[in-house]
Amino acid sequence: MSVQFAPPSPSLVLKSEEIADAAAIEALLDRAFGPGRFVKSSERVREIADFAPELSFCAFDGEILLGTVRMWRVRVGGQAVTFLGPLAVDHEQRSAGVGGQLVQRACDAARAAGDAWVVLVGDPPYFERFGFSAVDATGVRMPGPVDQKRVLALRLQAGAPVPAGEFGPV
Rank of each mutant, 00 (worst) to 15 (best):
R37L: 02
R44S: 13
F132Q: 06
C107L: 05
V135L: 10
A116I: 00
P163N: 10
G77C: 07
V74N: 08
P124G: 08
V162H: 02
V146K: 06
G62L: 08
V81N: 07
G85V: 00
V39F: 11
D108T: 10
V74C: 09
V162G: 04
Q101T: 00
G34R: 09
W117N: 04
S16G: 14
R73H: 15
C58D: 04
L154M: 08
E63L: 10
E26I: 01
F57E: 07
A20C: 01
G159S: 08
H91E: 15
G122N: 07
D21S: 03
A32R: 02
E43W: 13
E18G: 10
A158P: 05
R70W: 06
S56M: 02
F127H: 13
V135H: 14
A6P: 10
Q4G: 11
A134W: 01
L12V: 12
I19V: 14
V121T: 13
Q148T: 13
R94F: 02
R94H: 04
Y126C: 09
A49I: 06
F60D: 05
A20P: 00
L55N: 04
W72A: 01
F127Y: 15
A80M: 09
Q157F: 02
D108C: 05
P86K: 05
A80G: 02
F167L: 01
F132S: 03
Q4N: 11
A137V: 02
E18Q: 15
G131W: 10
G114A: 08
R94L: 01
M71Q: 14
V135T: 14
V69R: 03
A88M: 03
E166T: 14
L154C: 09
P143Y: 08
L154F: 06
E43H: 14
P35V: 07
R44H: 13
G165T: 11
Q157V: 14
S133C: 06
V39R: 13
D123V: 00
L65H: 10
A24G: 05
A116L: 00
A59F: 06
H91Q: 15
F38M: 04
L28Y: 11
R70H: 10
Q157L: 13
V151Y: 07
D61W: 01
P86W: 12
F130N: 06
E18R: 13
D136Q: 06
P53V: 01
R31F: 01
F5P: 04
I48R: 11
S9V: 00
E63C: 03
P145A: 15
L87N: 04
R105I: 03
G36T: 07
A88N: 10
V98F: 02
G67R: 04
R70Q: 15
I64S: 14
F130P: 07
V76N: 05
E63H: 13
E47Q: 14
